[in-house]
Amino acid sequence: MKHLLSIDDLGGESGIEEVLRVTDRFVEVSARDIPKVPALRGYTVAWLFYEDSTRTRLSFETAAKRLSADTMNFSVSSSSVNKGESLRDTVETIAAMGVDAIVVRHKSAGVPWQIARWIDASVINAGDGSHEHPTQALLDAYTIRHHFGSLEGRHIAIVGDSKHSRVARSNVKAFTALGAEVTLVGPQTLLPPSLEGWPVNVSHDLDAVLPTVDVCYLLRMQRERMTEALVPSLREYHTYYGLDGARAARMAKGSIIMHPGPMNRGVEITADVAGLDNAVITEQVANGVAVRMAVLFLLLGSGVDVIGSQS
């Protein structure tokens, strides 16, 4: 595997499982007093974020630094992009400086595929428009696996704006590849126009679905969806699809609540629910670093032995 553009690049269950197994090693590394290994010493990883994303960028940056890679941050707001430089020129310029991997985030679907056609370095998709966000799906799968041992046979509801969500698209692929049953929940206007070929169930009734799920995965509700007349109001959305304390209380024992962040408290999730013991949102963030270490390591590294062990 040279690039991680889509969950599809991992080739199904075995490839995803491999990433999760390597992630186990890096979770262990992250728990050390000095959470740093020389696995990618001499490698250079560049960030190319055309869309603001402090958390994803910091997560990747932390992962790269714990692997001893050199990092290069291409900040779009202060760069030649604002002087009209084309995407291709920008990418080829960075590649010419000698980078081993480019981590890209862009508001347009497909940009990582274009970049992968132009350069020799590995390309990691850190989110392309409404399309995919594979490392988010891997860290989510890792988090669920940590709680349940496996995703096999687990029922996961993905609630909210799956139409515009790259997290939903990658998660559906990863979760179902690992044997979970996925139900997309939301008003019809926030579901993809066609679900042909998607191995999912669909429901418009969160209350009916909630008692049956092991995982309630809440998507961020973008405020700009209001202007597109996709829902009547945030209040109505919250009334029917927001996870509040009363709804959370009806979830099965042992079930968990997840959210990719950043949360809109009071819209898709209430503050009290975000603070529940079975809300594992900060755990997702922590696992994100280890998963991204695993991805960088598998794409660039030469072997697991350089990770070492603490004892």
């Binding site: 679907a109 497909g110 392309d128 428009g129 409404s130 399309h131 995919e132 790259r166 698209r169 993809p192 126009p193 066609s194 679900l195 042909e196 070929g197 998607w198």
Partner: peptide
């Protein structure tokens, strides 16, 4: 075109 492919590709469609 808005349909199965636009939904998969995450590209907004025209019906």
């Amino acid at each position: 075109h808005e349909g199965a492919w636009s939904s998969r590709l995450g590209i907004p469609g025209q019906p």
